[in-house]
Amino acid sequence: MNIINFENIYVSYDLKPVLKDINLTIQNGEHWVILGSNGSGKSTLIKLISNDLHPNRKYPFTKEVFGKDRWSIFDLKKKLGIITNDLHNYFSVHGSFLTAYEVVLSGYYSSIGIFKHQDFSKEQHQKALEALEFLEILDIKDKKVSAMSTGQLRRSIIGRALIHNPEAFILDEPTVGLDIKAQYSFIKLIQKLSKNASIILVTHHLDEVFPEVSHVALVHNKTIYKKGLKNEVLTSSNLSEIFELDIELKEEQNRYTIGKIQ
């Protein structure tokens, strides 16, 4: 099954086009990186996938997620774990009183917090503990968001999605705000997640392209400039085009770095 099947999609804000001619198919089991500069349209593309934005109906289009053209947000979140910096920041401000365990448990109701009217089964409590253990943060189960590091909160929010056993995760610039050690640890976590679910990683950082990534889509000028197999799309010439610099791409042991910029 396709996770995403988009054809000829345009998105506009107040009649101003923000995405144009989007054609993208991502199949279950594939791991993708969506790469582009700031302002290229990556965040808008995430909102299109999550149903927070809808196509401009002036143009004929196909927009299917998991084979359906209509989803309730609540049902979609059970199949597609979406981890954004906006969600992270929202928990930092409005969920600072929550523990890591409560952040994970709140995923059952897609709420920010745990409330008296919410009932949780013994199995749901157990699943929350298993998610914390899988993410290697069981030791901070009772730690409040206000006292967490950036990496700890991000893992807790992933746990919030993980309790539904989603078929895919969308991760929006997941290592922002992490130091070098935490970045390395987080990439290892993404690799661990990729064994059980498809990963769609949205970023402008080449060092986030982990070895299991099979496909790359390059976003440039509000459209998808190139897409396909990683070794065919992730090239010096293509990166030079989308970042509008003369870039030399280096690859060593399936990890990518910038060798030279002119």
Rank of each mutant, 00 (worst) to 15 (best):
residue 7 E to Q: 15
residue 8 N to T: 02
residue 10 Y to T: 08
residue 11 V to F: 08
residue 15 L to K: 15
residue 16 K to D: 12
residue 20 K to Q: 14
residue 20 K to E: 11
residue 20 K to L: 04
residue 25 T to I: 15
residue 26 I to R: 00
residue 26 I to P: 00
residue 27 Q to M: 11
residue 29 G to P: 06
residue 30 E to G: 04
residue 31 H to W: 01
residue 31 H to G: 00
residue 35 L to H: 03
residue 35 L to K: 01
residue 37 S to F: 05
residue 37 S to C: 09
residue 39 G to M: 09
residue 41 G to Q: 07
residue 42 K to E: 08
residue 42 K to G: 07
residue 43 S to V: 10
residue 43 S to H: 10
residue 43 S to G: 11
residue 43 S to P: 09
residue 44 T to S: 14
residue 46 I to L: 10
residue 48 L to N: 05
residue 49 I to Q: 06
residue 50 S to Q: 10
residue 51 N to W: 11
residue 54 H to R: 11
residue 56 N to Y: 11
residue 58 K to N: 15
residue 59 Y to K: 13
residue 60 P to C: 04
residue 61 F to Q: 08
residue 62 T to Q: 14
residue 62 T to D: 08
residue 64 E to P: 06
residue 65 V to Y: 05
residue 66 F to Q: 06
residue 68 K to G: 03
residue 70 R to M: 11
residue 70 R to G: 03
residue 71 W to Q: 06
residue 71 W to M: 07
residue 76 L to K: 06
residue 76 L to Q: 07
residue 77 K to P: 04
residue 79 K to Y: 11
residue 79 K to H: 14
residue 79 K to C: 07
residue 80 L to W: 07
residue 82 I to K: 13
residue 85 N to P: 11
residue 86 D to F: 12
residue 89 N to D: 15
residue 90 Y to E: 14
residue 91 F to R: 06
residue 91 F to H: 09
residue 91 F to I: 08
residue 94 H to L: 09
residue 94 H to Q: 09
residue 95 G to T: 03
residue 97 F to P: 03
residue 97 F to C: 01
residue 100 A to S: 14
residue 100 A to R: 01
residue 101 Y to M: 05
residue 101 Y to R: 08
residue 102 E to R: 05
residue 107 G to Q: 06
residue 107 G to H: 05
residue 108 Y to T: 04
residue 110 S to C: 07
residue 111 S to F: 02
residue 113 G to L: 01
residue 116 K to Q: 08
residue 117 H to I: 09
